[in-house]
Write a protein that binds this DNA or RNA. Structure first.
Lengths: 207, 207
DNA sequence: TCAAGGACGTAGACAGTGTCTACGGCTTCC
DNA sequence: GGAAGCCGTAGACACTGTCTACGTCCTTGA
């Protein structure tokens, strides 16, 4: 029941709902409190500042994204297929929950830990680490390599590539760019670009 | 002289200065007016809303970036070298003027034209088009192709890659990711990742 | 030459924000 | 049963972006 949820959780819930419906720019502290049914001073008991609350909302986003990635990965057979699935999930998440995606990568939130204002706990930026290290491992397996160190560079470039696709596509900039180029139809799906990026970094798909 | 500059220009000047010194998050309308030495109501004569002013500041950023890219391109001999130079300029700009870079890609600004609030003129998003089309042309020349249509897909993927590198590197996330991977030293320059990305999308460098 | 008009910037009001502080009600334990 | 501490309320404060009315120039035209 909702009554069982802590006010702390309910505040984050309300924040997520607000981000999704109104966009990441209008996530006011007072508005969140209003939606959670408490006074504007209540959040301060759990989040010392507005930014700390936003940080907690963003952290929720990383949890969602991680869960989606794990679910998609369980249906794949090869490392390459898992990389494709992971990339698609990443880009789809950026498009479907754009406000959350924006919040998750707001650099002024990345150094906060979502509880205290001074980053004592794990910082938000580190929430991407597990997913990145999974990419490193998958890239290494794709190449049949044992050590991960030589795959890290490729993985970093690929990681940046998928992040860029997610961001530019969710904003519509990639569609505009390709549509504005003579003789190119703007695609309604980023799948072709995702394929191109994976092929570029990993070599053409085997199957 | 500064006295020759329009108040409109001086407002954008003050805004740029403020973004660079205080970050993109604290670019208040009133603070800009204060730094320009006018009252808080003055900007409204030229920018109907705060967002329109921010949009004009972002547009200034695209002009700066375009100028840097053109200057760097004039010293190159091959298409591949120009692509390398362009990528380096892009990533360096994101790092050196991070606040401007953030503003330039704030999606809620991308649909404004910086003057009216309703986008009557050219939208901010289209400010990236010339640079993207240059990338398309360069990619086509790198492959010795005549038509641009087949190069557009590769160019789009490469474009997203360099954008992702710029963003993640300027925030420090890529450094953290590579540093957090066993056996990898975090580099102090993004050049290796840039090289890896260009090699991936265009094939290994000829020279 | 002088008056009318418009461009330009000022200043106050208004609703709303994030943060801070003092205050009540409630539980929980000694 | 009283005291202590957690939890949420409510008001104040400085500040923000937007709107509106008002002056002060400069230009323009007869």
């Amino acid at each position: 029941m909702d009554a069982e949820r802590t006010l702390r959780e309910r505040l984050v819930d309300a924040g997520v709902e607000l981000v999704l419906s109104e966009g990441s720019g209008s996530v006011g502290l007072r508005e969140i409190a209003r939606r959670a049914g408490v006074s504007h001073g209540a959040p301060r008991r759990y989040f010392p500042t507005h930014r700390a609350l936003l940080s907690a909302i963003a952290r929720r986003g990383f949890e969602e994204l991680g869960a989606r990635a794990a679910a998609a990965a369980s249906h794949t057979a090869s490392p390459r297929a898992e990389l494709t699935a992971l990339t698609r999930v990443y880009v789809a998440y950026a498009r479907e929950r754009r406000g959350m995606f924006e919040l998750m990568f707001r650099h002024d939130l990345l150094d906060s830990d979502g509880q205290s204002e001074a980053p004592a706990g794990p910082r938000l930026r580190e929430a991407t680490l597990p997913m990145f290290q999974r990419v490193v491992a998958l890239v290494a397996r794709c190449r049949g390599e044992v050590t991960q160190s030589s795959a890290a560079l490729t993985a970093a470039a690929l990681w940046a590539n998928l992040h860029g696709i997610a961001e530019l596509w969710s904003w519509g900039s990639l569609q505009l760019a390709m549509g504005g180029t003579a003789g190119v139809e703007p695609a309604d799906s980023p799948d072709r670009i995702i394929e191109a990026a994976l092929d570029a970094h990993l070599g053409p798909a085997a199957s």
